[in-house]
Design a protein around this nucleic acid. Structure first.
Lengths: 195, 195
DNA sequence: GGCGAAAACCTAGGAGATCTAGGTTTATGC
DNA sequence: GCATAAACCTAGATCTCCTAGGTTTTCGCC
């Protein structure tokens, strides 16, 4: 019988595709093994556990996602950059739902802090906000608000949470508009006293 | 051996408590059975399946959550109401993480549409926005933005997604402030032409 | 109080999942 | 050409969901 030529990388790629089809949490080692034509026990030579596989999927998906966002934002600034960022974010979340779900799992902080993906993400996000002239701690607050809104919207939309007949793309455009306005009118921190 | 006195209600309550402790997705029928001192097969007399149990947990949690929010919002209007709503929302999400996760699962729409929980939620949410004088479709867009931000923030916070040393409560207050400002400056729809 | 029936709970077991231990086959470097 | 490491397998323990069918408790009713 010919060898399947497995590597950790190949297994994670197959798992990510499977996740986009059946959902991140429904990805099973047995399922991945079936898809690559191998017994489930064979995967353990390349991947420590299901937990380990999920962590690797998260890192892969995070990298892919920030790459697309970076490409969309490149060369833009201000509202243009915000709209491009938001559009790329939502498109990835909706077109690669399994990968997107992977990016949201809790990961050992030691693996993430100072990883290239994290650094790149912070770089692009804070760069996008430069045009609005915010300073710390307002910058961090603004980033948290953006992330929350983007993630919340995509999560609710993907879960079928928006039942009203109102067009979802239009609501999204409005939300991004609203965020832009918020960033323009940001309620800045009083730095003099610390209550 | 004495009977445990099971009812669907009791099982769902135990499952919800268990979810708050170990996480919604880690709730298992075997685990619930162990906790009430019964064999797992016995649960099937009261609950059709794990799926069924999860749906019931979602309905229970949704009712509990909207009750707390309603109590917080009662008698308030405008920004006051928004701050109270947001505070009650986040407190529930953080203190009852399993229940909160249950409210986010996808449910058969037939079970939800026109359910008391849904009606009540819509009533309170739209009532809270009355002070801002928005009309459809802006109203729906605003509700979607609020839900997205609240959910996204709580989901990221619960998942440990906010690593920066900046105080999370303060960022939240700022986010709610920002939402208030957004609602005041809402970019209203042009109803004359449909591009 | 006794009895019939429904409800509550049990045992037994299949199917599929994760993961370990240890064996066999294939590829590779010298 | 052969030793060895890597790739893959079988077997099996344990956990999960769920079904089928049996036993025991409870309760209304005569």
């Amino acid at each position: 019988m010919p060898r399947a030529g497995l590597t950790p990388h190949r297994i994670v790629a197959v798992a990510a595709d499977l996740a986009d089809e059946v959902g991140f949490e429904k990805v099973t080692l047995s399922g991945v093994a079936r898809r690559v034509g191998v017994k489930d026990a064979s995967l353990y030579a390349h991947v420590r556990s299901l937990q380990d596989l999920r962590t690797r999927m998260a890192l892969l998906a995070g990298g892919e996602m920030i790459d697309r966002i970076a490409a969309a934002v490149a060369g833009r600034a201000g509202k243009d950059a915000l709209v491009a960022f938001a559009g790329a974010y939502r498109e990835f979340a909706l077109r690669r739902p399994g990968r997107y779900a992977a990016t949201q799992i809790r990961i050992d902080q030691a693996l993430v802090v100072d990883s290239p993906v994290m650094r790149r993400t912070a770089e692009i996000t804070y760069g996008m906000l430069r045009a609005y002239g915010l300073e710390e701690p307002d910058l961090t607050d603004a980033v948290r608000l953006l992330r929350s809104t983007f993630h919340g919207y995509c999560a609710l939309e993907a879960a079928g949470g928006f039942g009203a007949p109102r067009d979802v793309q239009r609501s999204w455009d409005k939300a991004v508009d609203a965020l832009h306005i918020t960033l323009m009118h940001w309620p800045r921190e009083e730095t003099d006293h610390d209550d």
